[in-house]
Simulated assay, not measured.
Amino acid sequence: MDQAQQKNVATGNPIIRHKFTADPTVLVFEDTVYLYTGHDTPADGKEDYVMNNWLCFSSKDLVNWHEHPCPLKATDFSWAKGNAFASKVIEKDNKFYWYAAVSHASIEGMAIGVAVADHPTGPFKDAKGIALISQDMIPPTANKKANLDPTVLIDDDGQAYMLWGNLSCYIAKLTGDMTAVDSAIQTILLPSFQEGAHVHKRDDWYYLCYGYGSPEKIGYAMSRNINGLWKFTGILNEVAENCETNRPAIIDFKGKSYLFYHNGTLKGGGSHRRSVCIDYLFYNRDGTIKPVIMTVKGVEKAG
């Protein structure tokens, strides 16, 4: 286990203030929350995405965050040429699987790789040596960014599913070892789907949240079956301040539910220099989610 470095982050949003962070994915493991983010790097004054690696933070109360050494870079996938875009980390049988969107070095377009570790802070290593998903595997499309933003759910029966996409949302089963596709790739029809998918399950409902429209609000759909039919249910929150994109992550921790997202409110921030935030999330009795109000105050210590 690595030696964590504590960062005393000021209470409120954004929760990480010494670096630009984006596209949160969040894992709860052994009473600790692990936050994995993209890392926006200023591009010499140009407005563009420069993202070469991911970051990892942990917290036991959602207020005090510890930064860990960089757990994964885009080029840790030997077949990738760069671009550390949105990702998803999930645990199965005490192993940790990191699904990440990167640029493929030899097949045109974005691809999805999977890395694995024995501890949530890494070190993570490429689990396959080749892409899990590449442009030649999905339904024919001219969109070279189609393979963005993977999200993974392990269902109650142990079957894992991955959803991902840009402009189109795809779904496929994963093998038991979490490192290969185990079904045909299907398309989920959702209104105004842009990117940033996040899937989770609560009681008997599946929830699929995603970037809705452009600039992106967060919309969500619900289903009794992960294969659909998915019913668009509403807008989870509005466009984030000073930022054209968003990517939700939802967890339950110590009896409460939380929404992680990003905005562009740090000094010097914007759509290409984003910052992760947290606010409370509440469900209605019928399972629908109440719209989340994005706040500067953020959340109080959990527990």
Results as ranks from 00 to 15, higher is better:
residue 60 K to E: 14
residue 98 W to Q: 05
residue 100 A to F: 11
residue 105 A to R: 14
residue 116 V to N: 09
residue 93 D to K: 15
residue 115 A to V: 08
residue 81 K to P: 06
residue 74 A to K: 02
residue 60 K to R: 15
residue 88 K to I: 00
residue 47 E to I: 09
residue 102 V to R: 02
residue 73 K to I: 05
residue 85 F to W: 15
residue 88 K to R: 14
residue 106 S to W: 02
residue 92 K to I: 07
residue 123 P to K: 07
residue 65 W to P: 00
residue 88 K to V: 01
residue 114 V to T: 06
residue 106 S to G: 05
residue 105 A to L: 07
residue 92 K to M: 09
residue 124 F to R: 02
residue 62 L to Y: 00
residue 121 T to I: 08
residue 80 A to C: 11
residue 77 F to L: 13
residue 110 M to N: 13
residue 95 K to R: 15
residue 55 L to W: 01
residue 126 D to Y: 01
residue 81 K to C: 13
residue 81 K to E: 14
residue 80 A to K: 03
residue 55 L to Y: 01
residue 81 K to A: 09
residue 111 A to G: 14
residue 69 P to W: 06
residue 94 N to I: 11
residue 84 A to P: 01
residue 104 H to V: 05
residue 58 S to C: 13
residue 127 A to G: 04
residue 59 S to A: 13
residue 70 C to K: 10
residue 49 Y to L: 15
residue 80 A to H: 04
residue 50 V to K: 11
residue 96 F to P: 03
residue 71 P to N: 11
residue 50 V to E: 10
residue 132 L to G: 05
residue 112 I to Y: 06
residue 91 E to W: 03
residue 91 E to D: 07
residue 129 G to P: 09
residue 82 G to A: 10
residue 57 F to V: 02
residue 78 S to W: 13
residue 141 T to M: 01
residue 117 A to D: 09
residue 139 P to E: 08
residue 49 Y to R: 07
residue 130 I to F: 04
residue 128 K to N: 11
residue 48 D to A: 13
residue 49 Y to G: 13
residue 74 A to F: 06
residue 114 V to E: 03
residue 63 V to K: 02
residue 57 F to D: 00
